[in-house]
């Protein structure tokens, strides 16, 4: 038996899996066009098998999105894949005016959302990407955790006939989901709550699962609701799960002001009472650090989540 080895976390990059999904989508739909900006890691299969339907616009994000708009206005589904920080900030106006407002069928894939570019520094961090896209009516927003739900999220985004954004990791992400997991747009309850619930998305999911493991040693059962879909936000489900619980934590690699912290608070305000514990990026620019150091800086770790929950539940913290 090799069971102990299977328990060691596996890590995998999302990009090759997404490249396969896009390749299959292009095989199935002869109208689909994929655009990139001097980076074709997401389009390797489309480029190989359908070279006319992969267009590299160079390092020019505003034009990237404008060209996508023109293609989509001609009735073609379009995928735009590039680095998230530059997509969100340089092409913000084109995304809003030229794609999302008219509700065009464009799927945006943002590589390196949150602070996942780590030591590449603040120019490459974008802890506001989910909030930006969530602020655009007609738009679906996905924040997968690992290679498994990333493939699912891209398929879902392609199936949605309007604009969508999928945040993808910059490098390798911990694999949390079994390959045959069935996903739901209103979230997956990966652990049943006893006293408390963690609402988590992206890298927040393994953090919350680890926190649940730590808390189990203290006799506290932390439920974990994993959200691969950020918008539409499953407010009703969050309210139902929170009912009767003493504490709700939120775990996300995103600004608390515009991410699922805000959505969760809005779902609960006035209808639920208890300790509300956000573990998210606060209103400050990150210091220099790799991704793990930055997550630690903002309290987005299993230890921090467990300690805060124990304190709020009146238990002595031994989690650290």
């Amino acid at each position: 038996m090799t069971a102990p080895a299977a328990r060691r976390p596996a890590y995998a990059p999302m990009r090759p899996a997404v490249a396969q999904v896009l390749g299959e989508a292009a095989d199935a739909d002869p109208a689909l066009v994929v655009l990139g900006a001097d980076g074709y890691g997401l389009a390797t299969q489309v480029r190989d098998r359908h070279p006319r339907r992969y267009i590299d616009v160079g390092i020019a994000e505003a034009n990237l999105v404008g060209v996508a708009s023109g293609l989509a206005r001609s009735g073609r589904p379009v995928v735009v894949g590039t680095m998230a920080p530059f997509l969100v900030r340089r092409a913000a106006e084109q995304i809003r005016n030229d794609v999302c407002n008219p509700g065009l069928n464009v799927t945006f894939l943002g590589v390196g959302g949150g602070v996942s570019y780590g030591t590449l520094g603040p120019t490459h961090h974008v802890p506001e990407d989910l909030g930006f896209f969530s602020g655009l009516p007609n738009t679906r927003v996905f924040c997968p955790t690992d290679v498994v739900d990333a493939a699912w999220a891209v398929r879902e985004a392609l199936a949605w006939p309007g604009p969508a954004y999928v945040r993808l990791g910059a490098r390798e992400d911990r694999v949390v989901h079994p390959a045959d997991r069935e996903f739901r747009a209103d979230g997956l309850l990966l652990a049943e709550p006893g006293e408390a619930l963690a609402v988590a998305t992206g890298v927040g999911v393994p953090v919350a699962l680890d926190a649940a493991g730590l808390l189990a040693g203290h006799g506290v059962r932390l439920g974990v609701l994993a959200l691969p879909v950020v918008k539409p936000f499953p407010a009703e489900r969050v309210r139902e799960l929170a009912t009767g619980l003493r504490a709700v934590a939120v775990v996300e690699e995103h600004l608390d002001s515009t991410g699922i912290t805000q959505h969760t608070a809005r779902a609960l305000v006035g209808r639920w009472q208890g300790a509300f514990l956000p573990h998210a990026v606060d209103d400050s620019y990150p210091p220099l650090g790799d991704r793990a150091e930055l997550l630690d800086h903002f309290g987005i770790t299993a230890e921090a989540v467990a300690a805060c929950l124990l304190a709020s539940l009146g238990r002595r913290s031994e989690a650290r």
Binding site: A62, G66, G70, L71, A72, R73, D98
Partner: peptide, 8 residues
Amino acid sequence: SIGAGLAE
């Protein structure tokens, strides 16, 4: 840019 996409 939109025009370039229409032309493509």
